[in-house]
Amino acid sequence: MTNRFWRGLAILFVITGLVFTTSCAKRPVKSEPGVTTAEQEAQKALEEQRLREERLRQVARESVLNQDIHFQFDKSRLLPNAKEILRDKAKWLRAHPDVSVIIEGHCDERGTNEYNMGLGDRRARSAQSFLVDLGIGRARLTTISYGEEKPADPRHNERAWTKNRRAHFAID
């Protein structure tokens, strides 16, 4: 008990020192029992740790999930490169079993918007089926089609069209 008290007191000194040097936003805790402050600080450290991990996860998410897969004109078949990317995503999804994603199917602007809705749907489903075959639970993979409604590149040329024929992944 006493041991813990002294340790708490020591931490309190260090912390108050820190508070004074880093910020003057908070009044130094004067007469609060040291144990509570220590707990608060421990919590704070934990929170920081959590945020750091969150940021790391975010980076991983971005690198894995933000990569779109692309399709040929009027096709929903997965190209070899797309399968590679989906395998990476599957790996990441297996490591993060608590994450669910929305797979968005998109088309280029050519074609009528109702047929492109169907095509976008098929593109999202192709990606979904491939991930399910790799062992990712279907319940974690929702699909939606945006057809030609949300181009990644709004220009009207072959380059933009290539970019826009895609399946995009977003955290649900």
Binding site: E114, M117, G118, D121, R125, I144, S145, G147
Partner: peptide, 10 residues
């Protein structure tokens, strides 16, 4: 409103 997975169109 009919809200379903995938697309609900045309």
């Amino acid at each position: 409103a009919v809200k379903l997975e995938g697309s609900c169109i045309t």
